[in-house]
Every structure is written in structure tokens, then in C-alpha cells.
Design a protein around this nucleic acid. Structure first.
Ligand code: MN
Ligand code: MN
Ligand code: MN
Ligand code: MN
Lengths: 223, 223
DNA sequence: GTTCACATTTAGCCTACCCTAACTTTCGAT
DNA sequence: ATCGAAAGTTAGGGTAGGCTAAATGTGAAC
């Protein structure tokens, strides 16, 4: 009866969900930038999605997901994160390049397949980049970890999550040992947006220098 | 550089490949029927595929795949059959319903993923329905097995392959034990397209009655 | 050799999504 | 209170891939 959502619609909903995680409405231009589309294209799709009840659109003031829209978005997020986990754990996929594969597959796998993968993995709660995996009925852990960029000198933290959308960045992070569960100590930080210096692996770890833009992509928990 | 082929194009090429396996050109109406499209739609796509060099079109006389077209088709067939095998062997998928899942996934998986699946399976040469899996470079075993419908009373045969495109039919076949490698003995056959009676599992096996349409979907090798 | 049923193609239309260019609204700075 | 830059929307257009209805080609039957 209800036709399946198109790849395009699913990616819009997922993008809007991620933008509205940090509160408030999602702006047309933000959506356009993240999806690499012209703002005019976003306006067009947003009208359709408002029409279909997936979101509310206040012209000139952005969009918010409705209940059904949020559920649809979380279903896509679940598929994406389980796929990433499965590809890495069961098929030896590379931590850095798995995102792209999941970005396509998330629109092609059935719920049955996703649930079989989740089962084969023992129902994981986090994906390989530390992102929480929504449950089948659309619940998701609301972690609100600060980023490494906010930590002061002397802070001892555990790495919780990294942004997964740039393979190059992921490759670099992995080369430094900056993966979930790593223990970090901030040993120095330069003012005016200068780089942060951290020891990776606790007090005895290797030291490395991280620019602010990169540090902002790394979520940590105080220890 | 070369944009990936669309789902639609890949399904056209695969359908035309399957139709041209039994020699000669594929007719517009045959393609339309198999893909559940209007003949006019097929004519339109066929012109584009001829333009792009995937096939040769003699108006009013059907189409033939070119070398590149055949290779593209075999790549899709390889993806489909490896996916089916992987889903059944590694994820406990049902023999009957796996075709539908593979029909979508075959357009979304990367070559890297397919090769990792093939490796995890030990490079299988046949899919779960007995169909040969093309190699990475587009070679495929040319089996030319007769169908059960052509066997005379008394024939002892081994089941080699079954058509996989109807889940209901597959479910029925499995319930009778009619799966690849099963040993069959034809014990009776009625004239004028009447049903065939076979023992499944050799001389001592269960006997069952199979209509002609069904028997034509079952390929066997004499024993 | 004609005829005609059937296969095929053409013509015209539609939906989904994307684009650029032009126009409109908003809101912070003055 | 006004202005103008930035954000957002509207207008118009393109491609991909479907559809129906009408026109046309093919080939077997006569
Ligand atoms: Mn995606
Ligand atoms: Mn991830
Ligand atoms: Mn397909
Ligand atoms: Mn198969």
C-alpha cells in the first residue's frame, strides 16, 4: 500500500534528522550544503515532504520532522549503522571506507536483512565509529558528549565517537589511534583556535597534535 | 568517468542476456513481458542502449547484446548469484524469498563487497538454485541441461538447476525435495502434456506428481 | 500477390528530481 | 526606522524512465 520511500527522500530525512539533533529547525541552506544540492532543489523536496506529512515547513524559517518523519529517518540511520558494523566485523571492511558503501546499501536492504545482520552481530548498540544504533522501534540513546575541542589542558577523557563521513579524516584518526574507547590526556592547547596536543593511550601514550576542526569531530567523556 | 549504470539499465541488460541465452535476438515484447513494462517503454530504452553501445537493435527484429553489453549483464548476474548464496549460507535466508532481496541489492553493492562475499563463501561456482556464477571477468559455464519435462519414463537423473524467480514455486519444489543434487527417477508420464511422476531420492524415494509447466523449470542431468 | 493479425515504433504525456536565474523575505547593522 | 546581504522561494527548464493511443511494419495464411 504505502510505496517505499525513494533513496532521495530517505537521504533528505536522514540529513534533516541529523541537523535537528542539535535542536531547533533545519535550514534549507544547511540541508543543501550537507547533501551537495542547490537550495532551490531542497525547497522543492521540502514542500513534498511537508505534503506527505514527514515534516513541517514554515517558509523562510526551516523545517522540523514530524513523528512519522522522525521514525522514517531513524529507520534509515539504523540500517546505515548496522550495515557499517556488519561490513567491518563480518567482511573485513575498512573502518574508513565503509561509510560510502553503507550510504548506498541503506536504501536497498530490507528490514528482514537488517535484522538478520543485527542478530548475527549480537544486537550491537554502537556502530564502529561510536554512534548509537536506534532500536527497531525508533529509540536512540541521547548521548550529549562534549567534543575534544572543548577540553582544557590536563583533562583525562575516553574517546566516544568520531564523525564518519570523511574517509580521509577517518584514516588519519586511525593512524593516530584515535578510535572509540581510546584514553586521551590533553597536554597542551594553543589559544585562538590553535591546535590541541594530546597523549593517546593514557599518561604513557604517544603524543600528537590535532587541529581545532578535527578536535571538534571527536566526542569524548571525562574520566 | 563512466557513470554507473542505473538500476533500470542493469535490469534491462540482465533480462536481455537471459533471453538471448537460448540463442537469437530478444524481442521487444519478450523483454516487456519479463520486466512487466509496456512494449513502448522497451523500445525507448532499447534505443538508448543501442546508442550507448550495449546492444544492437534492428528495428522490428529485436536486439542482441554487444561485447560490452554482455559483460555488463554478466556482472549483474554475478552480483545477483553471489548475493543469493551469501544471504542463504551466512544469514540463514530462505531459499524461496532470497531472489527478491538480491534483485534489489544487485544494483547497490560495490564490486569490492561482492568479492568479499565471494571470498567468505570460498568462491562458489553455483548459486543455491544451481545456476552457474560468472567469474569476475565475465566467463560463465555453458551448461545445456535438458529439462525434466523432456525425460522419458525410466530415466534416472540428478537435479541440476531450478528457476528462481517465483518464491511460491520454489517453496513448493523444496517441500517435495526437488533441490539441486536430488536424484530422481521418472516412473510415469501422461501423454498430451500431462503430468510426470517421479521418485525423489532414488529408487526408494517418495513419489510425486509434477505438472508439465513445473517440470519445464527443472533442469536435470542423466545418471 | 493480398490481406490482416500481431508486433513494434512513434507521438505525446507524466512524475520524480535535479539545475540556474530571478525574485522575495528576513534580520542584523546602522 | 531603514537598508542591504544572506537566505529562501519561484519560475522555467532538463534528464531519466515510465505510460497510453495511434500509426506502421512484418510475415504467415490464404
Ligand atoms: Mn544514503
Ligand atoms: Mn558510522
Ligand atoms: Mn534487479
Ligand atoms: Mn538464483
Amino acid at each position: 500500500m504505502t510505496a517505499p520511500l525513494s533513496r532521495s527522500v530517505e537521504d533528505y530525512l536522514k540529513t534533516i534528522y541529523r541537523l535537528s539533533e542539535r535542536g531547533g529547525a533545519a535550514a534549507t541552506s544547511e540541508i543543501a550544503q550537507r547533501m551537495d544540492l542547490a537550495p532551490a532543489s531542497v525547497t522543492g523536496m521540502v514542500k513534498k515532504l511537508a505534503e506527505s506529512g514527514h515534516l513541517e515547513h514554515v517558509p523562510y524559517h526551516g523545517v522540523r520532522l514530524t513523528g512519522p518523519g522522525r521514525l522514517a529517518a531513524l529507520a534509515v540511520v539504523r540500517r546505515h549503522r548496522i550495515l557499517e558494523t556488519y561490513l567491518i566485523v563480518k567482511l573485513g571492511y575498512d573502518w574508513a571506507s565503509v561509510h560510502e558503501e553503507a550510504e548506498r546499501l541503506e536504501h536497498a536492504v530490507s528490514d528482514e536483512l537488517v535484522e538478520r545482520m543485527a542478530e548475527a552481530l549480537g544486537s550491537p548498540r554502537y556502530d564502529p565509529h561510536g554512534a548509537p544504533i536506534p532500536t527497531r522501534d525508533g529509540e536512540i540513546e541521547q548521548s550529549d558528549y562534549p567534543s575534544l575541542a572543548q577540553m582544557e589542558v590536563g583533562a583525562r577523557v575516553e574517546l566516544r565517537q568520531v564523525d564518519d563521513d570523511d574517509p580521509e579524516r577517518l584514516r588519519f584518526l586511525k593512524s593516530l589511534g584515535l578510535v572509540p574507547a581510546a584514553l586521551l590526556v590533553v597536554t597542551d592547547r594553543q589559544p585562538f583556535g590553535g591546535p590541541i596536543r594530546v597523549k593517546v593511550g593514557g599518561e604513557e601514550g604517544e603524543e600528537c597534535v590535532i587541529g581545532m576542526a578535527l578536535a571538534a569531530c571527536i566526542l569524548v567523556e571525562r574520566r
